[in-house]
């Protein structure tokens, strides 16, 4: 088991592979956006425009990450407002 766990290290050592700058930036940005969304939702469910107002991020980027977070069970939809926007809340636990 311990040998299996080290296969990524072995691959890096053998092939000299390093994470590309683009992939590190992808990771950094998604973490930044998802952390900001999570923080904005801590004080209650919000719509995409409300999250945009709270975070200063663009609505399309928020929505894209919100739907990704929905796929992985981090957020879930709440009620829809009169303008046709769903509110989203953090999944407890």
């Amino acid at each position: 088991m311990s040998e299996r766990r080290s296969t990524v290290v072995q691959l890096r050592n053998r092939s000299g592979l390093k994470p590309s700058k683009e992939n590190v930036e992808l990771m950094r940005r998604s973490k930044e956006v998802q952390t900001a969304i999570t923080k904005a939702l801590k004080d209650g469910p919000k719509t995409v425009p409300e999250i945009a107002k709270a975070t200063g991020l663009s609505k399309d980027e928020i929505f894209w990450h919100l739907m990704t977070m929905h796929k992985y069970g981090v957020v879930e939809p709440d009620e829809k407002d009169e303008a046709g926007y769903f509110r989203y809340r953090l999944v407890e636990g």
């Binding site: 995409v48 929505f63 739907m67 879930e76 926007y85 769903f86």
Partner: peptide, 16 residues
């Protein structure tokens, strides 16, 4: 589906 409903990608609004 990728969204929780039919919504538009720019801001998650339900299209009319």
């Amino acid at each position: 589906r990728p969204f929780n409903a039919v919504l538009r990608p720019s801001d998650g609004k339900e299209p009319s």
